[in-house]
Amino acid sequence: MADPMMIEVKQLTKRYARHVAVEEVSFSVQRGEIVGLLGPNGAGKSTIMRILTGYIPATSGTVRVAGFDVFSQAQEVHRRLGYMPENNPLYRDMRVGEYLWHRARLKGLTRARCRERVGDVIEQFGLADVARRLIGHLSKGYQQRVGLADALVHEPELIVLDEPTLGLDPNQLRTVRQLIRDLARHHTVLISTHILPEVEITCTRVLILHLGRILAADTVENLQHRAGKRGQIVAEFQAPLQELKAVWDEWPEVEHADVVPADGSYVRCSLTARPGADLRPAIFLLAVRRGWPLRELTRTRHSLEDIFVRVTRPEPEEET
């Protein structure tokens, strides 16, 4: 096999008795990618992850992990997979060290390898201080680290994390995100989340999921770029309003301009450029040439949030 895709999902559909959870979803993930599965609650993120990890079967379609079918070759898949389910379930009655040891042995590591790896992950996730404490007594942030350590202890090729930052406080959030980003160097990672900034910060590629379908799949930059074509440039000058209007009307690259007086003697111009044009240097030169003080010059980039809202808007639109 010539280096198969890490994840290959084809025409995946999951139907429950009353409703369709996932419909005709296809995507693939290459080795070394860190992909975010983004969608509102109930979009089918967890369902896809559960099928991907072989916990529940698909109604139709095929799912392959590292070239192995998740249903018929589940054991092969499980050996290569580190999975942290939603809400990070752990044996709360075990001690951190015991738990990691148990999980590592369960995943087929030899005793010597276990000793090595459990030591490694305890160090990697900063668990040394709590190694002898009961998991149930730990804070949520530490529990999350234990879950991540468990997912990583057997050095899996693929790591699947379902809502890994759910219920963390901002400090813990930052730590866990940093840990996830560090993972990306050596592993393929699939993360699900409904928190947008998280994807922007951690992922190289995003799949936007809504009502069981994939609505958009691209890199964060491309998605931003695509939406950014309609992005605006805001400039504030201290200049006569009429003169400014005249300038924009004559400028061929400006498609549309809104000119309104701002506070003081400033005038705020919101400009829409023709696709592909970057007006900012020219605006700067204009200000210099005419001697107009320029106090603001920004391009309003579309955040992932805009894109997300746009593609998951209820009425169907030919957006993507």
């Binding site: 559960r50 990890t53 072989g54 916990y55 054991q75 499980h78 050996r79 997979l81 999975y83 942290m84 389910p85 939603e86 809400n87 379930p89 752990l90 044996y91 709360r92 999980r103 369960l106 995943k107 087929g108 468990d150």
Partner: peptide, 14 residues
Amino acid sequence: YSGTFETLMTAPVS
């Protein structure tokens, strides 16, 4: 009940 069944069944055991 606690959800650990999912981590258990996705470990390489039958």
